[in-house]
Every structure is written in structure tokens, then in C-alpha cells.
Simulated assay, not measured.
Amino acid sequence: MSAHVSRKRSRAEDDGEGVPPAKRESEHHVKGTAGTGQTQTTASDGGQVFKKDREFWFDDGTVIFVARDTEFRVYKGVLASLSTVFKTLFADRGHTVRNVSIDEEQTILCPIVRLLDSPQDLRHLLRVCFFSKRLESLYEEKEPSYDEISAGIRLGEKYKIAEWYSQSLVYLKSYFPRTMNRWTALESCDGPPGWEFGNGIGVISLARKTEQLSILPAAFLSCMFAESDSPATLGIGHGFTTEDGSRQYLSPGDLTTCFHAKTSIRVAIVTSVFRTFEPEPSTGCKTSSTCKKVLREVLVGLGNNSELLLSCNPFSDYDSYFSGTTLAICRACTTMVKARSLKERQDVWNRLPELLGIDVPGWAEE
């Protein structure tokens, strides 16, 4: 991937022909190698000191990116082949250039491109572009962090890297689905494996940014009901810290939605649970008095244990609400209770946007 450069310097390189003097920089740094893990510095731009990135500083790179206080030296050709935005950016002749070495004898004029992205976000982009064997299967063998998925959606869209954007969005939707069956099939409502409590706040922001509103209900559920050592409302109110050290918070409107909707959803779920265990046996029941008694005892038990009603996943199956491994009723009544449970929970799921006070077109159609 080294740039092809003649050993004999061109006149343009020697004399700066065609390059405004004010846009030339000299290199004042110790030569480094990508992947060494050593942080080195480059003095440029009026004496401002920049750090060489530990992961992306290739000695024969053909472009230098500057993101905040960090410089990345990589290859224009690879990036231009994956992104039309980068291709257009590199075609601009107005960039500052720096005369840099590629070995002990050769130098090239390397454009310096300043980006508004954080160094952390830019690293995620460069890993996808330079280290991924196949862009079509980015997440098949890994469990990406929130920051990786967030960068994939935001920078994938910004730089028109379609595969990165679409796969990041598909991954996000798989853990914040629009159907109850997919939601209840997840191991927890905390989000993808390894994600931290509070990342749902960022998911709400991403859903609004991309106008993928079908993500919103499950993202709100994650914020309201995810397991945490501290009360969920406290975690929501304090936001969470992103990879670059900044903090993200729910907007005042979304925070209000969480507080109000948590109550309205719990009321709807509690109502559905009591309907599920209504002591009315199945029409096919042959032990109606026994089954009616058992169902009534379940309701009494729930009434005496309101904490259980409030602590369960709001869309848990019916057997999460009673003690023991089985419900001691006949087969016909068991089938009836299962059907009731599914219908009642599905009805609440279909009403989620209404309970949240948000608009999600086509929510209950799938």
C-alpha cells in the first residue's frame, strides 16, 4: 500500500511549484510505525502540538488527517475507493501540505485534512476501511460496543460508506426490535451484549437522527426497565459517558416521556396480568372448581406481592408471575392462560407508542 515515488525529487517537491508557501509545512517528528503502541508528537501549524495516533500512522501514508489533537497518516486511495465523500475531499487542491519522508531517501508532499470527528470515531472508521476483510460481514464474529455502532451509523452516513452504515443499523434494530416476539427472545432488555446501562439514551438519539422511529419504543423500554445497581430513573437522569469522554443526556422531553410512560406501561401490564389469570376456567375444563381455585390463588398472591408485578420484565410470559415450576391447572386451562397471556401482552405492545406518547408510523402492522 506504499505510495509510488521516484527517488529523484520533482521540481514541485523541491521548489514548492504550484503550492502556496503559506500552505506548506515541514515535518518535525520522530519517524514512527503503525501499531507500535507508541504515542509520538508532531509539531506543526504555528507550533501547536499534535499526537501521532498509535494505531493509524503508516510511514508511507499519502494523507494526514487531523482530528482534534491527533494526527492519522493513512492511504488516500483506499479511502477514496470506499467513500465518494473522501474522493471529493481529496480532489480539493486547497489543503495544506507537508513534506514527509516515506523512507530514508524519499519524500512526498502529503495533504493535511482537518476533520471535525473525534479521534475515537475516526479510529472506528479507519478500522473498518483498513482492517476489515469483508465489508459485507462486519459484525458476524464480534460483539461491537455502543460506540462502534454509533460511529458506524453517524460516520457511515456522513462519509457515504453504505455497508458500514446499513450493517450498523441492522445490528441496532436486532436488539431494539419493533416486534414483541423478537423483544422477548432477547436475553435481557439491557441492550446488546457488553453494552452499559444508559446506552439506550444514545440509541434514542440515533433513532431520531436517522428517522428510524421503529427503534424508539424498545430504546425507551431499555432506558426505563434495564437492570442497574441504581434506580433506573437516576441513571437516566445522569446520562452516560461516551468513548471520547463527552456525556449524552436525554432531552427534557424524552426524560419526561420515561417518567410518565414507566407508570402508564406498568398500569397496562398489571391490568393484562390480572386479565390473564382471571378465575374463569376454559370451556374444555373438566376440573373447573380446582382450576378456578388455583387461578384465584395466583391473583391473591399477586395482590400480596405487588413488588413482583413491578420488578418483572414488562413483557414476561405468564409463568414469571407465580411461584413454582408449573401452574397446577388442567391442560385445557393451561392452554387458555398461555393464549390469554400472549394476547394481553401483544395488545400492550401494540399500544406502546400511545403509552409512550410518541408517533411511530405502522408500528402495530407487523
Rank of each mutant, 00 (worst) to 15 (best):
A3L: 13
R7D: 11
D15G: 02
G16T: 14
E17Q: 12
P20G: 11
P20H: 01
P20I: 07
E25G: 09
E27N: 12
A34L: 03
G35T: 06
G37I: 03
Q40E: 08
Q40V: 06
S44C: 08
D45C: 09
G46Y: 05
F50W: 15
E55T: 12
F56T: 01
F58M: 01
A67M: 08
F72E: 01
R73E: 04
S83C: 08
T88W: 01
L89S: 00
L89E: 00
R93G: 12
G94V: 01
I102Y: 03
E104L: 12
C110W: 08
P111Q: 02
P111F: 06
P111T: 07
L115N: 01
D121C: 04
H124I: 09
H124D: 11
R127H: 04
R127Y: 06
R127Q: 11
C129T: 04
E136N: 09
L138P: 08
Y139N: 00
L155D: 05
E157L: 04
K160V: 14
A162L: 06
L169D: 03
K173C: 05
C189V: 07
D190W: 05
G191Y: 13
G194A: 12
I201S: 13
I204R: 08
Q212V: 09
L216W: 05
A218K: 00
F220C: 05
L221Y: 08
L221Q: 07
L221D: 01
E227R: 06
S230M: 10
G235C: 10
G235K: 09
I236Y: 01
G237V: 07
E243Y: 14
G245H: 04
G245D: 03
P252G: 01
P252W: 03
T256P: 00
C258W: 00
H260C: 09
K262F: 08
K262T: 15
I269K: 04
T271S: 12
F277G: 11
F277I: 10
P281Q: 03
G284H: 14
V300S: 07
N304L: 15
L308Q: 10
S311V: 04
D319Y: 13
S323Y: 09
I329M: 05
A332L: 05
T335V: 03
V337C: 05
S341E: 03
L342Q: 04
V348R: 06
V348W: 01
W349E: 01
L352H: 02
E354N: 10
G357S: 02
I358E: 02
D359C: 11
V360E: 06
V360N: 06
E365K: 15
E366C: 14
